[in-house]
Design a binder for these strands. Sequence first.
DNA 1: GTAGGGTTAG
Length: 734
Amino acid sequence: MPQFSSHLSSAVLGVSNILHLQQFHAQLIQHALHRHDYWVARLIAFCTRFHAPSDYTRIFDSTHQPGVMVFTNMLRYYSKCGGNSEILTLFEEMQRCGLKPDECVYPVLIKAAGKGGVLFHSQFVKMGLDCGKYIRNALINAYGKYGPIEAGRQLFDEMTERSVADWNAIILGYWNWGSEGEAKRLFDLMPDKNVITWTTMVSGYSKMKDLENARSYFDRMPEKSVVSWNALLSGYAQNGFSEEALSLFNEMVSTGVTPDETTLVSVISSCSSCGGPALAESVVNTLGDRGVRLNLFVKTTLLDLYAKCGRLEMAQKIFNELGVHRSSVTWNSMISAYMRTGDITAARELFDQMPEKNVVSWNSMIAGYAQNGRSSLAIELFKEMIKEQIMPDEVTMASVISACGHLGALELGNWVVNFINAHHLKLSLSGLNSLIFMYSRCGSMNEAKMIFNEMETRDVVSHNALITGFAAHGNGVEALKLLEKMKDEGIKPDRITYIGVLTACSHSGMLEEGRKVFESIKAPDIDHYACIVDLLGRVGKLDEAKRVIKEMPVSPHVEVYGSLLNACRIHKRVDLGEFAANKLFELEPENAGNYILLSNMYASARKWKEVDRIRELMKTRGLMKTTDGAGWKLKRKMQAAGYIADKSNVLRDVEDEDKEEMVGTHSEKLAVAFCLLVSEPGTVIRVVKNLRICWDCHTAIKMISKLEKREIIVRDNNRFHHFKDNVCSCNDYW
DNA sequence: GTAGGGTTAG
């Protein structure tokens, strides 16, 4: 140390926060030493330690001729508190000043270079330089982060003396590459573990969702730091254990540990499912009083919390206040906020304005479109993404496959599957679930079953997707088998499972089995009642159906009466049909379908007067214009044949589509949906029994065959219609 | 003076 006043030398030892730092800086100015290399370097080191805001770095600008030490500490500051671009700029400046990087600079550079950091290694070897211990540690870290981890291990093994930091680096590396076993082996072998070693284990188990082990290492730690608490806290928060996270936070506070910004992020994000904005606000306020600042992470988390709790105006407020400081996560969170409320226009505007989109931005938009019933927009955006050469990931794929399923676009779906294979992408659990859904939706039950059987782990959604597929295809036996199988595997059926199984029973006329399933439901909800009413109705047990409706603990909704009405039509029970229809007229006076159904029922009972009465009723209620005959006829026929559930999502989706989304008239849309639903390339389209291809359908299929350039064969009773190149072999309808 | 913890999308 240079010869300075002993007063300063002892004063520097007492600097332990930013305020001290400012006071000390003032003292240096008094002694005219504030531009001296040694002291500037020390000041910058303090800035790094206290995470001082970047305007403190003016200290650096005030030096006349910064030496290596000042540059190095400044680089360290940027490495911890700033960005990598500043590091590279500063490094270039350093070289311009004719200063040679030394052993202390390289570790910073290796870290800043990211993936390229490991290139330094070969450089050193080529130059015949011996890597010092800090450089070697930085290299092990780089290999641990970007691979190959084996290269890091080799470095580690070759070392004659290993520091705690080296052990920690290699253990972390193994966790990064998912090698729990090797990480644990080295941990057990390690002679002197410190708090970082233990925290690495806690965080490793947290990240692989093994919270029991994370907790057990946490409890066994000889000492804990804030980071240790945060590691476990984030493990709970990110895996949906919000209550555990909040109670751990309480434990943390009562132990006397001072939480920091990172703590806040986990706590606030847990509040979105537990406690809500009020709890988050009170935590923010109490910690704010203790001097915890709200950084960008915290503000973004808060924004997300408000958005998830329906307080869009607060989310928007934070978004506006952040201005240019917004990160891409902030943007993405706001996009999802709008998508959640169904405001796809506002979401799109943000997406277009966003300065730097990442894959999550694209995923948020694609998923948002898909969830708002705009599957074709989702797929359009996906195609745009490919065109822009943005690499989709497993999340993109899950949404896109699901959108294909909703559209019944099997060919596109198969293209996506090929894309996944070609780019060696892995499908996540939800991606595979989407795939089962898509195949089921497109009528490819064999493929759906194959995917299901090949899955390593299956959850309740996987089972539901397949069961719903069986239901749509009237395969009650398989649906029931799967219900039993999932129970055996310890997967608890949920309400969707039971809707699927009951629908399957209904579509295959399995009365007794359906009854048994219904009775086994602990707390049947209104949809389950609708299913059992449908089942009873279809097999002709109409009075029993009516009794069930009467005894329902909740007031029946449209689906319940709709099922009953449909059953009355099939079984020609005009009396009960009138009862159901009148209820429906009360519940949804605007739905012309109910009137049509009742009118058809009268027609089949040859009660022509009543038919006219209903027609008049519709006219006076102004409902005639929405009932362009062919479309409804098609829908009714499909319903009558039991091929598609009464409230099939396909039909609903098509009806919900905006006009711009599909070409053709309303009835053609129905036809298109129908065709896409049952078609599969290379197979003959099965047309539901008694359904003749009407003119609309004919047009629509021609359109599909032209657009998709595919050959479609449709069997209509005993005739075959062969569609190819905009021509149909059987043109009776023209 | 090397090492551990954080927000968004299915």
